[in-house]
């Protein structure tokens, strides 16, 4: 009985909508997300546009759409970069073993004690705020996560008979990793990519909230919340929309990741 898990469907739909909104915002938004219209200042949902207008009269719905592009772009780039480096470290550690493995995992430990915000504070001192700082800070934190997951998964495959057979046939560790290990752990890596992209969106929002993300006027959900803080009592709608957008985006990616995991690894279905 092969059934699609409900989380996969729901997560796929939300993530699809998120990607759709991000792509659509490149060619069309209801209003120009950077155009101010002081007459609409702080107007509520329905009074000006679907979700109201912000402190300088920009259309909130349009900024949310354009913010999806920023958020997703930074989170995905960081996750793919960190994922690629981390996976490379993980599978190499599993293949080489010994001192190399211990050293790689020790460096991982150091990297893991630098959460994105902390690296961003350090990198911000070096390069100033911006997309590159965000991507690097988030990407660096992804490296140990992927290294750990891919190493664990790779070690499991290494102990299997068909890998032993390949070794006996005279294949080197690099070739085995390429031909046997990577294809067999790709499902786990893809699951992790989805979940970590969600985490990347959360981190990006946090960095922009602190003013360490993309520079204005590039739309960003985190900065929308930082701006909204000033108008908390007079315009609460400004707090609700970006927060919901972040939460929904992360929820969608997490559900997608869970669903993919259930699909590829039925044993975990009852456990989590």
């Amino acid at each position: 009985m092969k059934r699609f898990p409900i989380s996969l469907i729901l997560g796929g739909l939300i993530t699809g909508a998120l990607i759709g909104a991000a792509l659509l915002s490149r060619v069309w938004t209801p209003a120009d997300p950077t155009a101010m219209n002081i007459l609409n200042r702080l107007k509520g949902p329905g009074e000006a546009g679907l979700l109201g207008a912000d402190q300088i009269g920009r259309d909130v719905f349009s900024i949310i759409m354009a913010g999806a592009w920023t958020s997703l772009g930074i989170a995905m780039t960081a996750t793919l970069l960190g994922g690629a480096i981390g996976t490379l470290i993980g599978v190499s550690a599993a293949a080489k073993g010994g001192v190399f493995e211990r050293l790689a995992m020790a460096i991982n430990g150091v990297l893991f004690s630098f959460p994105p915000i902390l690296s961003a504070i350090l990198l911000g001192a070096l390069m100033g705020p911006g997309a590159l700082t965000s991507i690097t800070a988030i990407g660096v934190f992804m490296i140990p996560v992927f290294a750990r997951v891919s190493r664990g998964a790779a070690l499991q495959i290494w102990s299997r008979d068909f890998v032993q057979a390949a070794r006996m046939a005279g294949k080197g560790p690099a070739l085995i990793t390429l031909q046997h290990i990577l294809p067999n752990i790709s499902a786990q890596i893809i699951v992790q990519l989805a979940i970590q992209t969600g985490l990347g969106i959360l981190s990006e929002a946090g960095l922009s909230f602190l003013g360490m993300g993309v520079a204005p006027p590039t739309p960003s959900w985190g900065r929308m919340l930082a701006d909204a803080q000033t108008f908390l009592s007079s315009a609460p709608h400004l707090v609700l929309a970006p927060g919901l957008a972040i939460a929904l985006a992360v929820l969608g990616l997490n559900l997608l990741g869970d669903g993919l995991r259930d699909l590829t690894d039925p044993r975990r279905r009852q456990a989590s």
Binding site: G198, L202, F209, L225, L232, G243, I246, A247, A249
Partner: peptide, 11 residues
């Protein structure tokens, strides 16, 4: 897990 803590703070 999905909700940012600073947003919860604002709420």
């Amino acid at each position: 897990i999905a909700v940012p803590n600073f947003w919860i703070g604002l709420l």
